[in-house]
C-alpha cells in the first residue's frame, strides 16, 4: 500500500508542478521568452501571501483575491518596462536580464524575510483527509491543489483558443509584424501574456506555501520542475504540461520510496529519459 499511496501523492503533487509549468509555457508560447526568474517570482508570491495573511488574518486561499491581481499587475509592469526592451532576434538579453532578476529576488527576499523557512497555515484543510482506496487516504489540500491545476489549465486553454485575447496571443506569436497591422500592439500583447503568467505564478506560490515550508532560495528548483514538466509534456501543449507535471511528481514519489536521497534525482532522470527518447515531449502539439 505504501507504493500506491506514494504514487497517488505523486500524481497530486504533479498538479502543483503543472501550475509551475503553465505560466512558463504560456510566455514561451507567446513571445519565445524563458523567464529564468519564474521560480523566484513563485516564491515572491508566497511571501506576498504571507505578508497579506500576517496583516489581515485571511485564510491563505482567500488571500489569492489580493495576491493574484497584484502579481498580474507586477507582471504587466515588468514586461512593459523591462522585458519588452530585451526582446528581439538575440536570445541572450532576455535570458541574462531574467537571470539577474532571479539573483536580485533571492537576495532581496533574504534581506527582507531572512533565511528562516515559513509556511502558510490552511487550518482544517491541512489536516483533513479523505479515503480514496482501502488504506490510501489523501489530504483535502493536495486534492484541492490538483483540482485547481486542472481548472487553471482549462481556463488558460479557454483564453487561448476561445477569446479575443487568446487570438491576439496566437497571432502575435505566429507573425508579430503582421499582427501589428491588425491593430495589435506587440508590447501590450506581451505585457498581457506576462500578467496572465504572473496570475498563475501567484496561485502556484500560495499552494506551494500551504503545502510545505518555503525560503528565499527555493525558486530555481521550482523553475526546473516547471521546465521539466513543460518538456516532458511537449512544447506548446497545456494539457501535456499537466501530464508532464504528473509524470514528474510520480517519478519523484517513486524515487523517494526507494531512498529519500533519490527523490529529486528520479524526477530529473525521468526528464532526461524523455529528452533522450522523445525530445519533442510525450504529447507535442500537432502542427497544422
Amino acid at each position: 500500500m505504501d507504493w500506491v499511496n506514494a504514487i497517488v501523492q505523486g500524481i497530486l503533487i504533479g498538479g502543483l508542478y503543472a501550475l509551475f509549468a503553465a505560466g512558463l509555457s504560456l510566455i514561451f508560447g507567446v513571445m519565445r521568452l524563458v523567464n529564468i526568474a519564474h521560480g523566484d517570482f513563485i516564491i515572491a508570491a508566497a511571501y506576498l501571501a504571507y505578508v497579506v495573511i500576517s496583516a489581515t488574518g485571511l485564510h491563505p486561499l482567500l488571500s489569492l483575491v489580493f495576491v493574484v491581481p497584484v502579481a498580474a499587475a507586477a507582471g504587466y509592469v515588468l514586461q512593459a518596462t523591462i522585458l519588452n526592451r530585451t526582446l528581439g532576434d538575440d536570445l541572450l538579453p532576455p535570458l541574462l536580464v531574467t537571470f539577474g532578476l532571479s539573483v536580485i529576488l533571492q537576495n532581496g527576499l533574504l534581506e527582507i524575510f531572512t533565511a528562516d523557512s515559513r509556511k502558510l497555515d490552511a487550518g482544517l484543510l491541512d489536516i483533513q483527509t479523505v479515503s480514496v482506496l482501502p488504506g490510501v487516504s489523501v489530504g483535502y489540500m493536495p486534492v484541492l491543489m490538483f483540482m485547481t491545476a486542472v481548472l487553471v489549465i482549462a481556463g488558460l486553454q479557454y483564453i487561448f483558443y476561445r477569446t479575443a485575447l487568446g487570438r491576439a496571443f496566437r497571432a502575435t506569436s505566429d507573425d508579430g509584424e503582421i499582427a501589428q497591422l491588425m491593430g495589435l500592439d506587440n508590447r501590450k500583447v506581451f505585457a498581457a501574456a506576462m500578467a496572465l503568467s504572473f496570475a498563475v505564478i501567484a496561485i502556484a506560490g500560495v499552494f506551494l506555501a500551504v503545502r510545505a515550508n518555503f525560503d528565499p532560495f527555493m525558486g530555481p528548483a521550482r523553475l526546473i520542475f516547471g521546465f521539466e514538466a513543460v518538456i516532458i509534456g511537449g512544447l506548446g501543449n497545456l494539457w501535456g504540461t499537466l501530464a508532464g507535471g504528473v509524470i514528474l511528481g510520480v517519478a519523484q514519489a517513486i524515487g523517494a520510496q526507494i531512498d529519500p536521497g533519490w527523490q529529486l534525482l528520479a524526477g530529473h532522470i525521468a526528464f532526461l529519459v524523455v529528452l533522450a527518447v522523445k525530445p519533442r515531449g510525450l504529447f507535442p502539439r500537432i502542427e497544422g
Binding site: R167, D175, I178
Partner: peptide, 14 residues
C-alpha cells in the same frame, strides 16, 4: 502571411 494557428474565421475576425 496568414496566421497559421488561427482558423479561417479567426483570421478574418482578427
Amino acid at each position: 502571411r496568414l496566421f497559421p494557428s488561427l482558423s479561417v474565421e479567426e483570421n478574418l475576425v482578427i
